[in-house]
Design a protein around this nucleic acid. Structure first.
Length: 429
RNA sequence: GCCGUCGUAGCUCAGUCGGUAGAGCGUCCGCCUGUUAAGCGGAAGGUCAACGGUUCGAGCCCGUUCGACGGCGCCA
């Protein structure tokens, strides 16, 4: 048995080959049938001629529809007319699992594709995205390992929110309520006192009623936290990590990137250091471009697009006003109106993919800020404890994996960066 | 939460001024030994999202509801 990739390499030219997979396209011209077979490595044309295979095999080929699973034996031949330049001339054709008429044809609406998601993920586009995502994750995991980070496993069920501003999914937890995690940050912070450098990949949940091409209610969150690291060091980790992830994808998945319309050479050019711009500088630039913003207003989708639409590399925006960010960030000693934090914006208008900061170590400040936003202090007791026993300067960030994939794969919507997207209107399939 | 668009055959859509429901693809049958979303001939296939209203008559006009999609806000 050969993979389609092996077959298309041509190394078996003139020899017997066997492939198995699914019918991707099939056409008949009477006594010759052209079947395009797909497996996880690619697609290849098979010709089935009457007389060249046993009659039952010919009938099986003639009656097999799109997505039937099949095994084919034959001889590998070179043929300019075949896509890929090679074809398998069948001597045997067996249907393993017949297929009813496939619901997805060449004309597809967004709604149909989302309703039939369990079938649409067989598409070449979706397969390419999954492979690229896999490669990005491998690149990240390798980078963390090489840089002495410990991969840890924080809880998904929690009793407290990491960010007061966001909405939580509540669940019944025996005789009380608990919540699905929206960030592992507090748990990672508590692990730096022993492991020093930690990271985790976990699902995060946001119950916000966001209807945009950049939001999922369930997404994969790649988070890192490190002791003895300041905000500048934090940004260095981000740019090195992201570059390592990009190298992995361009090395392993160049063909998949091209299939999605993304030129891998453009991604290869991205390397540290990334451009840094203060929030105040961003505001000045936006005002010059005619945006209706003033110091203190948040960067919305329009503003992020305006700042990055002509960039080829990601851009850090640093030192946001405190009002726009959560309570746990460290005050900027050079401008007390702002925090020592950074958002990393992807180029081409794709927007924020990472948010990070140096963390506040002064419990008095943390308590004051929590009081200001009306939080129940009991929920934060264990978090405040962390500052009582050997507190150290530390920083961390969270990367939205699907947002990163959306940018790298040049997708129009984040739902295509995950096989089964969970959005405000979708939990099926 | 706010603004907008849409809902007609399995799928993608057209449907004019309110007057007998249409096409392409898919499916089924027939023809075809080099197709590339193959081609040719034929057939089957409809609660026009739901409910209510106007009208002699509603897919079309009005109202309500439901669903989906696009954009904004919030965030990664």
């Amino acid at each position: 048995m050969q993979s389609v990739k092996q077959v298309l390499s041509g190394e078996m030219l003139g020899k017997p080959v066997a492939v198995r997979g699914w019918v991707y396209r099939i056409r008949s011209s009477g006594s010759i049938i052209f079947a395009i077979i797909r497996d996880s490595t690619g697609i290849v044309q098979v010709t089935v001629k009457k007389g060249a295979v046993p009659e039952p095999d010919f009938e099986a080929a003639a009656s097999s529809g799109i997505e039937s699973s099949v095994t084919v034996e034959g001889t590998l031949a070179e043929d300019k007319r075949a896509p890929g330049g090679y074809e398998v001339r069948a001597t045997g054709f067996t249907v393993v699992g017949p297929s009813e008429p496939f619901p997805i044809t060449e004309y597809q609406s967004t709604e149909l594709l989302l309703d039939q998601r369990h079938l649409w993920i067989r598409s070449r586009e979706q397969t390419a995205v999954m492979k690229i995502k896999d490669s990005l994750l491998r690149g990240a995991r390798n980078w963390f390992h090489e840089n002495d980070y410990v991969e840890v496993t924080p809880p998904i069920i929690t009793g407290v929110s990491a960010e007061d501003s966001t909405t939580l999914f509540q669940l019944k937890y025996f005789d009380r309520f608990a919540y699905l995690s929206q960030s592992a940050q507090f748990y990672l912070e508590s692990l730096i006192y022993s492991c020093e450098r930690v990271w985790a990949l976990t699902p995060s949940f946001r119950a916000e009623k966001s209807r945009t091409p950049r939001h999922l209610t369930e997404f994969w969150h790649l988070e890192m936290e490190a002791a003895w690291v300041d905000n500048e060091g934090n940004m260095k980790v981000q740019e090195e990590l992201l570059s390592a992830m990009l190298s992995s994808a361009t090395d392993e998945c160049a063909a998949e990137l091209r299939h999605l319309g993304r030129n891998p050479a453009m991604l290869s050019k991205i390397s540290p250091p990334f451009e840094r711009m203060s929030y105040s500088e961003a505001m000045d630039e936006l005002q010059k471009k005619g945006c209706d913003v003033s110091w203190g207003s948040d960067l919305g989708a329009v503003e992020e697009r305006e700042l990055t639409k002509d960039k080829e590399q990601p851009v850090f925006v640093v030192n946001y006003p405190k009002e726009l960010k959560p309570f746990y960030m460290k005050e900027n000693p050079d401008d007390a109106r702002t925090y020592k934090n950074s958002d990393l914006l992807a180029p081409e208008g794709y927007g924020e993919i990472i948010g990070g900061s140096e963390r506040e170590t002064d419990n008095a400040l943390l308590i004051e800020r929590l009081r200001d936003v009306g939080e129940n202090m009991e929920n934060y007791q264990w978090y405040l404890d962390l500052r009582k026993y050997g507190s150290v300067p530390h920083s961390g960030f969270g990367l939205g994996l699907e947002r990163t994939v959306t940018w790298i794969c040049k997708l129009e919507h984040i739902r295509d960066a995950i096989p089964f997207p969970r959005t405000i209107a979708r939990v099926y399939p």
